[in-house]
Design a protein around this nucleic acid. Structure first.
Length: 344
DNA sequence: CGTCTCTAAGGCACCCGGAG
DNA sequence: CTCCGGGTGCCTTAGAGACG
């Protein structure tokens, strides 16, 4: 039976300006807190360790304001990161399913492990539940709520303080218990700290879309030149599809296309370019079978962007004409032409 | 303060077609 | 032909709000 590890970290950072350390380890973990739940989301045990930091030996002011953890306390109660992570992984048991609030914790955990020369025991792809994302899926909104907000909205008693690793993990567990987690449990997240090797790219299947994650490339151009990224496969029959609209970009990070499957209809594609750890890039492609409204959405996306721009350009032109007129005319002329703009 | 993400908006260069 | 402005694409900047 699977069990869930609700993880929360506290970390410190360089209290001064950027230095060489920042690029190696921007965030140094100072506390690991976690709650273990069984497959019915009942609490089985809790884990909490303070860590004596070795990179940043001064507490960042803002971090102290948030966590109220002092360096003195860490020196007194903290243990070595190596010992804490060993105890933590041991406490997690076999095949834990990790859950966090937000997408940063598992990345930072791994970055700290690598810094300390500890081998990563996690699967590749490293799947986990981002409960902040699941919470917004259940609400049907695109907002990213803070943990405090979710706790308040679900009327969870605030019997513990916030912003301590174990307490926040415990609140996260409470939110998970009360938000009908299993209705969205197919929506796993992927941690992108470790990326697949070439030829080991992977696809994740979701109820209404597929997600494809590439290996790292040197440049965006190199990524977009790779057929494995740009080809679109039907989510239903895995057939390679012909495109009706080639890949185009509405901004600098997203690309869209529209393909058609002879059996299952239209499939829209979306590519998102992301930065990899080593300075290169990788891409996440999602493909989704779509109905007429989805088709129209893609078809008109270019035109929407175009129309928005041209409307804005017209507004600006009128506005500049207005200002020019204002320089040579009196106040009444100015207000009348302003009214004209408002009517548009 | 520093990370991340998303959005809006500004600057710039290029292409293209109409006016001269 | 040149000139000019609109449309377009690409890049940068800034703000908001999540995380610590």
């Amino acid at each position: 039976m699977s069990h869930y590890i609700i993880l929360d970290l506290e970390w410190n950072q360089n209290p001064h300006r950027r230095s060489g350390d920042d690029e190696i380890l921007p965030f140094e973990i100072i506390e690991i807190g976690a709650v273990r739940l069984n497959d019915r989301l009942e609490i089985e045990s809790e884990f909490d360790r303070l860590i004596r930091p070795c990179v940043y030996r001064k507490m960042h002011k803002k971090i102290y304001e948030v966590t109220h953890i002092s360096m003195e306390e860490l020196d007194r109660k903290g243990i070595r990161f190596r010992d804490a992570i060993t105890q933590f992984l041991d406490w997690c048991g076999d095949d834990p399913v990790f859950c966090t609030w937000g997408s940063m914790d598992l990345t930072e955990l791994q970055r700290n492990m690598v810094y300390h020369g500890i081998e990563l025991p996690f699967d590749l792809p490293f799947l986990y539940y981002d409960l902040q994302k699941i919470y917004s899926l259940i609400k049907g909104e695109r907002t990213k709520d803070s943990l405090d907000t979710a706790v308040a909205e679900l009327h969870i008693d605030t019997v513990r303080p916030f912003h301590h690793a174990l307490d926040d993990a415990w609140y996260t567990a409470c939110v998970m218990q009360r938000m009908n987690f299993f209705s969205r449990s197919k929506y796993v997240s992927v941690d992108y700290y470790r990326l697949p090797e070439p030829k080991s790219e992977f696809v994740l299947h979701f109820p209404e879309y597929d997600k494809f994650v590439t290996h790292p490339y040197e440049t965006r151009e190199e990524a977009l030149a790779d057929r494995k990224l740009t080809q679109v496969v039907c989510c239903q029959c895995q057939r390679a599809l012909r495109k009706k609209i080639r890949w185009f970009s509405s901004n600098q990070r997203f690309y869209y296309c529209l393909a058609v499957c002879p059996e299952h209809g239209y499939v829209k594609g979306k590519i998102r370019i992301k930065k990899a750890e080593d300075g290169g890039v990788f891409a996440v492609k999602t493909t989704k079978i779509t109905d007429q409204s989805g088709i129209d959405l893609v078809i008109s996306k270019k035109e929407d962007v175009r129309r928005k721009r041209s409307e804005r350009a017209k507004r600006l032109k009128l506005h500049s004409l207005d200002e020019n007129a204002a320089q040579s005319a009196n106040q009444s002329h100015r207000s009348s032409s302003r009214r004209k703009i408002m009517d548009r």
